[in-house]
Design a binder for these strands. Structure first.
Lengths: 237, 237
DNA sequence: CGCTATTTTGAGATGGCTCAAGCTATGTGG
DNA sequence: CCACATAGCTTGAGCCATCTCAAAATAGCG
């Protein structure tokens, strides 16, 4: 299912292609293909050698990595407009992670050579990627430091706050993370187990901070999470 | 103490400037300054707003970050030829980390504007930075995943192996990490405490894998570390 | 309406942290 | 040149946050 109009619109507003004119984006799109994937399927799998650069047009995907010991780690969730697979294009020749569709998703796709040509034709694209990569690098550093210095509860609070900022949807009752997000998923984004996540969410639920169901988390009192994330003395103290 | 000859030589062989001709490197050096720093002092401190791009010419430095709770984390050690401070130039306007000289060190330094001009004048530089940043991004992801899935002993084994590859010096007795590296430093690179590092090193010493003294670690049997790092069945099993 | 995936909760185990104490090089001032 | 101070290191003991394992409750799905 190819939807060039949508793709054009998303790219024009993306951090990578946003600085090109509409005509230029169309030119770049001419050497791209479109890939659509249904929930649970993959855009690419960790270890594959093909090195394409993709930008998500619609849906939600998660980048995951599986360790030799069998642990899965979620590196990042991606929303429309964001690139993925860039590392494989720029550094090594195979994907260091898998890209799984969390909801039905579609993306535009350039192969490595096409992308290199685009970067030469439009040097600003390389600079945009550089800027975005720098930003993501810093965010990854933040999480790395969090992981090595903070307790699980605080890491979970921060992960949920990041998710709400990035992918949250306002509702009358609070902020909802608008796709399937299991306890296991949360465990894999915070470096803990689903049991610990479940216990913490239960506790928060009694404190009125969240309301969670099967694969859904609704944050009813975001400030409560901020308090936990930042260790400000709580109003009840 | 300015040593243009050395700087030129290091840059010509660095991953960033290695693809320029000698004349071009000289041109780039013309808008750079040199900064020398003695052991224990800093090239820049976390939070400073000045955003310079530096390449280490001689010495060893460590990039560290201090959390609001007072924990220090070592992000990376830098050797001559490697850039640092790039994130501040490319993304935000202040340094997310501090750069401390582990031995007396000197670096060449461009301010943000100069660096941006160089990237426009020599587009290959931006691409080189992009490639290096991608690589470092992937390495940081590796360590992130390690931190969230592996035990301390294995993390320490891997950290030491990385250090030997990056900064090790062959000696008759084994591979020595050739600068002051305390138990505390190792704890800060692996996300643990100096006590745990000390216990593990003691155990390894009885197993003949390492020989450690005050601020020195000598790896006498690297394969022993690999075994621990990769969980191959040990020969004694 | 039973099946299966997800979640909750309990109970017990444990890896690693914290705190405390003593030890040992290294360097320094008398 | 020695004695003392200091920074780094080791080791023990106790504790606790989190993991592991087990079992039951719940909820969507075919």
């Amino acid at each position: 299912m190819i939807m060039p109009t949508t793709a054009l619109h998303v790219l024009k507003n993306s951090p990578i292609f946003g600085s090109l004119t509409e005509t230029e984006v169309e030119e770049a799109l001419r050497c791209a293909s479109t890939q659509s994937v249904t929930e649970g399927d993959y855009f690419f799998m960790q270890g594959e050698t093909s090195s394409a650069f993709l930008i998500l047009v619609s849906g939600r995907i998660k980048l995951t990595r599986l360790t030799p010991e069998g642990y899965q780690v979620i590196l990042r969730f991606i929303r429309p407009g964001e690139p993925f697979g860039a590392i494989a294009t720029l550094d090594v020749r195979n994907y260091p992670a898998s890209a799984e569709a969390v909801t039905d998703s579609s993306a535009v796709r350039w192969n490595g050579d096409a992308m290199r040509r685009i970067m030469i034709r439009f040097p600003q694209i390389a600079l945009n990627i550089l800027g975005l990569l720098s930003q993501q690098f810093r965010e990854l550093q933040d999480r790395y430091i969090e992981l090595s210095t903070e307790r699980v509860e605080r890491r979970l609070a921060r992960a949920l706050l990041r998710l709400t900022r990035h992918l949250g949807k306002e509702t009358p009752e609070g902020i909802l993370i608008d796709f399937s997000l299991s306890r296991q998923d949360l465990a894999e984004t915070t470096g803990t187990t689903l049991y610990t996540v479940s216990r913490i969410l239960s506790r928060w639920e009694t404190q009125g901070i969240v309301k969670s169901e099967r694969e859904k988390v609704l944050i009813t009192r975001p400030h409560g999470l901020v308090t936990i994330a930042e260790d400000f003395p709580s109003p009840e103290d």
